[in-house]
Design a protein around this nucleic acid. Sequence first.
DNA 1: AACTGACTCGTTAGCGTTAACGCGTCTGGA
DNA 2: TCCAGACGCGTTAACGCTAACGAGTCAGTT
Lengths: 355, 355
Amino acid sequence: MGERKSGKSSEKKPVQKTGVTLSDIAKAMGLSAMTVSRAFTGSEQISEKTKQEVLKCAKELGYVPNRWARSLVTRRSSIIGVLIPEISHTYFAEVTCGVEEIVDKTGFDLLLCHSRGDAEKERAEIHMLIGTRADGLIIASVQDSKTERPFAELEDAGIPFVLVDRFFPNRRFSSVLVDDLEVGEIATNHLIDMGHRLIAHIQGPPVTPAVLRRRGYLSAMKAHGLPVDKEWMIGKDFSNQNGYVSMRKLLQLKPRPTAVFAANDPLAIGAVRACREAGFRVPEDISVVGAGSIEGDHNPNPFLTTVWWPNQEMGRAAAELLMKAIAESDGGETHIRTFAPKLLVRHSSGPAPTK
Amino acid sequence: MGERKSGKSSEKKPVQKTGVTLSDIAKAMGLSAMTVSRAFTGSEQISEKTKQEVLKCAKELGYVPNRWARSLVTRRSSIIGVLIPEISHTYFAEVTCGVEEIVDKTGFDLLLCHSRGDAEKERAEIHMLIGTRADGLIIASVQDSKTERPFAELEDAGIPFVLVDRFFPNRRFSSVLVDDLEVGEIATNHLIDMGHRLIAHIQGPPVTPAVLRRRGYLSAMKAHGLPVDKEWMIGKDFSNQNGYVSMRKLLQLKPRPTAVFAANDPLAIGAVRACREAGFRVPEDISVVGAGSIEGDHNPNPFLTTVWWPNQEMGRAAAELLMKAIAESDGGETHIRTFAPKLLVRHSSGPAPTK
DNA sequence: AACTGACTCGTTAGCGTTAACGCGTCTGGA
DNA sequence: TCCAGACGCGTTAACGCTAACGAGTCAGTT
């Protein structure tokens, strides 16, 4: 067995598999480990000269300080946990991107965790993050009001956290929100303004944002004296598939709705697909409005009329709240930042058919 | 000056800010720390009875094992680093999602790092990940062939890694790829089949995938004896904005191209936008084909004709390669898996205008 | 009765790093 | 000349955990 790399090596030293340590380079330089440590921690108690020498020697030997040994004694991991249902949802990807921007700037790193929409998995991940001694958490929770237990654990562990787009009325947690009630109202009002009266709603799962958007839909309809048939509210999760299936059902109703407010964009896109397959034109025959559009350069969808809000900025805001909570470590106050949604009129909505 | 923690404490125990430790519950139960440890590590050297008692007591006291203390002695962090340009690109989000799926299943966690397309930042993150003693890395690198230095560092540190969609011909690294040459050919051939002859190409940045797609475009054109004007190849990065700007320039050429192959979907969407703004219809006047479509339920784009490949599955494949490399720790062999792209004909491409 | 071996549990030593303190050396001012 | 104080470095003792070995108990075997 040939050694693949003999390092700097003195004589035999088979393979330094474990990696170079502080005391390795301390010995090599005839210094104490402490002095070497000081060269890396930015301590004042070391002369500039030896500091440079140490850094140089460390580089040659390929030494990189062991983060965990350090954080064990420092009691800070410099790790922020991000706990979301799934990163492939563009919405969460953009929030996460905003979080990363701030967090990276402050010298922390991101541990990415998926709850996959499962409250129990979320709980397990929180537990894991406590074990990881994360310095803080950003959570897009799938817990409902009855299962706040995981958050209590976090508080016991003294780990600050900020919720994204989830609000628990009975308990104040720091959070960053969109006004989801307004989302529902804006979308619905737009359709009403275009002359629609038979407006259906494809809803999401029973989490706060979806519930509020639905409530906004209902409130807008009511405000205009428009009746809402129970069959017009349909759907059970945020998937494209659900949008497709729900729309197919809606198309069979009579009278057939002339417009649909879908609780998010994937739902809306699924709905559009169902309409077209069934031979209806969008928006000439049926108008569709989504919600939660993606921003930025990467994946714009130029077709769908939708209600937009600044995902990435919300991520930044959440991270800023968290950074402040960590820095001040008061742990006491909770802050809530709410963002206003905005209607983006594009090409999937139009005037109600005159028929 | 108040003592922040009086150890195990006898009477008052103000706030155990530091968190409960192994020996805390060892003392509480009259056991040794080792026995308690065994209850958590799944060791055989403990009776089922005491194990359950320990677990129960730990739960009551809110004890969670300190991951870093553990990994310090274990020499395994159970952390996989994912180093990508930016998670808000749906492409990387989906790859990451696939990675997470496998990695989570195997008991690892993901440290998410952004290179932001900057080779130097990427290098810094790799350095950080070495310090973190990550057990393995998945990298969508922005290094070019001349700057492989970071990878050498990884090899020295004995950290296995798998590259995603980057290939370094002069050096064999384990990697997962799409056949980008074929991507370019498929897209271009499709347009040629539709009768187009004046086909332009909006290209990406000078990284391997973009270069290969362009080469595929050229090869397809050449194979059909079609000339390529230098002005038809334009563009410098993967952004939507670049697609828009480049298309505007292409529209002013005479003769004006009747079709465009854009190196990825954001480019294509930007191009479509430019066409429409200038009063051209897509696909009646101009056909546009993208590449790298997103899959899954969340963000389908039902309009764009594009070349597709299985992002999420590629992520899974990369993670599986990495898991194997970690488990076997041979570190020797390198594996390369290539995925075939597939044309998705939708509504942004059509027959060449007869003029 | 003595021996073997399986089971449980404890003891000793670190893993690689930093906090806190201590000890020389050198400088400058009275 | 002497001493305060700054400066640069070393020593000791953790941080919370587990590997490796060792010791005690109890059953079954010879």
